[in-house]
Amino acid sequence: MEAVLACVIGVLGGAGVWLVQRPRTFQVIMGLTLLSYAVNLFIFSVGSLAIDKPPVVRPGVPADLEHYTDPMPQSLVLTAIVISFATTALFLVVLLATRGLSGTDHVDAKEDEP
């Protein structure tokens, strides 16, 4: 399971970094989105992966990491998702404004000289 998740994070992160360096604003926003997916999965994975272990304490079960998964990364990832979603949405607005003002979707708001 760890290997699969590591591969997924690697592929998402790699694709994100490549896309962020592309000249079109749409590619950049897709890259940022993929990067934030990679980061969120990464945060999730630092709490060590476990199947069938809830993060919420139940009565009668001793409260240690034998029986539960670490709730901290899950709460961190929730906050991180909300924040990255909001800022990406803001980026989308600026992207559209640039497109409207300059008439091109190049990140520098002007086409490269041929």
């Binding site: 962020v20 604003t25 950049v28 940022l32 990067l35 934030s36 990255s84 800022t87 990406t88 803001l90 980026f91 600026v94 992207l95 404004a97 640039t98 003002l101 300059s102 990140v107 520098d108 708001a109």
Partner: peptide
């Protein structure tokens, strides 16, 4: 807006 786009992208990274 143009420099704002760059500023946003850098800070998101």
């Amino acid at each position: 807006v143009r420099s704002g786009l760059h500023y946003l992208a850098v800070n998101l990274l």
